[in-house]
């Protein structure tokens, strides 16, 4: 069965490229872009006391701030994962591994996006032990130790989920794995901007997720050419 499927793939690709050649003047892919902002009082980030872990504290000349809400000028928000939650024909998972680093007792990046089934590699760059404890509830929850100089921990996740990651040894270390079913995703920069490109014309639901502000969704219709704008405004609750 498998051989038949595989042999049919190149033919299909040929057919698609032939179609592409015929309709060359018309753009077949649009996109969605926008800016993510919030209203209300900007939550204050606090300095992290790493004095219990001198090997990490010494790497930071000024105290590291918490990264829960990273706001930019004009109340833009960084680290918002924007992805297509409906209307997308999810393709095969990306084969290249995504990398998650522990450096200076921080997670880099703070939010790591990956696709379902995509290989994940976790590195310890510090001179101290970390334990990587992704608190998954839909996927299995595991917890592994990683002393300095040990090889990367490799894992994959089978189901879409936003997973909190923590290190029990260093309680200030908090990060997230965003495991998505789609290959169409973006993560907002400090200017709050995101852009999803290469979308076939059609209706989509796009969802924006933030660790503190939660999720929002909206429907967009992507035409054969041009980029649709979709902005998200989160509400910062006073606390």
């Amino acid at each position: 069965m498998r051989t038949r499927l595989i042999t049919s793939l190149p033919l299909l690709a040929l057919a698609v490229s032939a179609m592409g050649a015929l309709s060359a003047p018309v753009k077949t892919a649009g996109g969605v872009s926008g800016t993510i902002t919030f209203t209300g009082t900007p939550p204050r980030m606090r300095p992290i006391d790493m004095s219990k872990e001198p090997s990490c504290a010494s790497q930071h000349p000024t105290p590291v701030m918490t990264e829960t809400v990273m706001a930019g000028a004009g109340n833009t928000v960084q680290n918002v994962v924007v992805y297509i939650s409906a209307g997308d024909q999810a393709g095969a998972a990306a084969a290249q591994p995504v990398r998650y680093d522990q450096k200076g007792c921080q997670y880099v990046p703070h939010v790591l996006v990956m696709q379902v089934g995509q290989p994940l590699e976790i590195y310890n760059n510090d001179q101290t032990s970390h334990n990587i404890h992704p608190l998954a509830t839909i996927n299995p929850e595991w917890n592994k130790s990683q002393p300095p100089g040990t090889p990367p921990i490799k894992a994959t996740y089978a189901k879409p989920e936003f997973i909190t990651v923590k290190c029990n040894v260093h309680p200030w270390m908090h990060g997230y794995f965003a495991v998505l079913a789609t290959s169409h995703y973006a993560i907002s920069g400090n200017d709050g901007k995101f852009s999803l490109a290469g979308l076939a014309p059609g209706k989509y639901t796009i969802t924006a997720w933030h660790e503190k502000f939660g999720t929002q969704s909206q429907e967009v219709t992507v035409s054969a050419s041009g980029t649709v704008t979709a902005n998200f405004v989160f509400k910062a609750l006073p606390y």
Partner: peptide, 14 residues
């Protein structure tokens, strides 16, 4: 095996 659900991790790979 580690004690899942607690801070005690697994050392099996190490």
């Amino acid at each position: 095996t580690g004690l899942d659900g607690t801070p005690m991790p697994s050392f099996a790979d190490l």
